[in-house]
Design a protein around this nucleic acid. Structure first.
Lengths: 103, 103
DNA sequence: TCCATATTCAAGTTTAAACTTCACTATATT
DNA sequence: AATATAGTGAAGTTTAAACTTGAATATGGA
């Protein structure tokens, strides 16, 4: 569900990156999350939906306020992606080293 | 120079992500890199410049062909970014736990 | 030398993502 | 009950990123 594609696409935007960073410090409502940005609540809600779909943010609506907090699942997916890249990359470098050793 | 902002913005695009993935398998020329995509060489060159500026790809021009390969510096920056997020996040959860313990 | 190949540059176009407006629902407060 | 608060939905606009065109440059091969 939360693939690397969604996570990286979500974090490609400066506002969403900032939102994630702020949510690591403290959970907050949609309005509080929106406060620092020069954009409408609607726009912030749209960003939030993208972050949630990517598994980077978890939200829970209690009464009329929705509380937003970090979801580490998205970061897990991101780490898995980079680890996979690194392992192919290192395996390749090793193979290259072996070829050079044979000379 | 290679900040997380540039890396995440670079990896936000599907084509660039695919390029990085392909370059972990093998280094190749700009033309070879461009081959699978339904776009001009110019466009691929533009993507390449963004990846290079982000520290995700290294290139070297030998004669008239530019060889492109993965640059792990970009991945290092990405890892550092996620690790920083996780540490603030975990510190926060610990502090929250302490407050609950006091009851 | 002549032509093909590999890439790059500057400038314009297109498209998708970000953002807005305005109306609406649901919950809280007086 | 009336009003304010918090957020959501649908539909349109704006803008920045992706992409193209039509050159030019530089290297390699016949």
């Amino acid at each position: 569900m939360t693939d690397a594609r969604k996570v990286l696409q979500a974090l490609g935007d400066a506002t969403r990156r900032d939102m994630v960073e702020r949510l690591t410090d403290t959970a907050m409502s949609v309005s509080a999350l929106a406060a620092p940005y020069d954009m409408t609540l609607t726009a912030v809600g749209q960003h939030l939906a993208i972050l949630e779909a990517a598994g980077l943010v978890k939200t829970e609506k209690i009464g009329r306020v929705r509380s937003c907090s970090l979801n580490s699942a998205g970061l897990d997916v991101l780490d898995a992606w980079t680890r996979a890249l690194r392992s192919t990359w290192e395996r390749r470098l090793d193979a290259l080293g072996d070829v050079l050793d044979e000379k």
